[in-house]
Simulated assay, not measured.
Amino acid sequence: MKCRSLTAVAVALVAACTIEVPLDDKRCPCADDWICNPFTDTCERPTCDADVTTSNLSAQWSTSNEIFWTWDVAGQPSAFLSYELVLAESKDDLETRSGTARTFDVSTNSELGDPITSVVTRGLDPDTTYFAQLVVTDSSQCSFGSDIVARATRAEAQNSVVIFRDEPVAGGVLRPEDAGGPQVVSDGTGAHIEYVPRFHDACVPEDEDFDSVRALCGQPIKLQEMTLDVSRDEASPQLDRLNADTFGESFLEMSLSSEAPVDTLVFQIWFRLASCTTDDCRYVAGGFTLPANSGYEPIQIPLTEFRTADDVALTYEVLDVPDGEPIKEFGFSFQWHKTGTYRIDDIVIRH
Rank of each mutant, 00 (worst) to 15 (best):
Ile221Lys: 04
Ala155Asn: 05
Ala170Cys: 03
Cys203Ser: 08
Gly181Met: 07
Gly188Gln: 12
Arg154Pro: 00
Pro168Phe: 08
Asp178Met: 02
Ala157Leu: 06
Leu216Trp: 11
Cys203Gln: 04
Val184Gly: 08
Gly181Ile: 02
Gln158Ser: 08
Gly171Trp: 00
Asp178Ser: 09
Asp166Arg: 10
Gly180Ser: 13
Cys217Phe: 10
Glu206Lys: 15
Ile221Thr: 05
Ser212Asp: 15
Gln183Leu: 08
Ala202Asn: 14
Tyr195Glu: 01
Gln158Glu: 08
Gly181His: 00
Val169Ala: 03
Ser186Asn: 14
Leu216Phe: 13
Ser160Gln: 12
Gln158Ile: 02
Asp201Tyr: 10
Glu194Trp: 02
Asn159Arg: 13
Gly171Pro: 02
Val196Ile: 15
Asp178Ala: 12
Arg154Phe: 06
Arg198Thr: 01
Thr189Gln: 11
Pro176Tyr: 11
Ile163Arg: 02
Ile163Met: 12
Val184Ser: 06
Arg165Ala: 04
Pro220Asn: 09
Cys217Tyr: 04
Ala170Leu: 07
Pro197Ala: 14
Asp187Ser: 10
Ser212Ile: 13
Tyr195Met: 07
Pro205Ala: 12
Ile221Cys: 06
Pro168Ser: 08
Pro168Asn: 06
Gly171Met: 03
Glu177Val: 03
Gly218Tyr: 04
Gly171Glu: 03
Val213Glu: 04
Val173Asp: 06
Gly188Tyr: 09
Pro205Gly: 14
Asp178Pro: 00
Ile193Trp: 00
Ala215Ser: 12
Glu177Trp: 01
Ala191Ile: 03
Asn159Val: 01
His200Pro: 04
Asp207Glu: 15
Ser212Thr: 15
Arg154Gly: 04
Glu156Leu: 11
His192Gln: 14
Asp211Met: 12
Gly188Trp: 03
Leu216Glu: 11
Leu216Met: 10
Leu216Arg: 11
Ile193Leu: 09
Glu206Ile: 14
Phe199Ile: 08
Pro176Ile: 13
Asp187Thr: 14
Gln219Trp: 00
Glu177Thr: 09
Ser212Pro: 07
Pro182Asp: 06
Val204Gln: 01
Cys203His: 05
His200Leu: 03
Val161Phe: 02
Val161Asp: 01
Gly218Gln: 09
Ala215Thr: 08
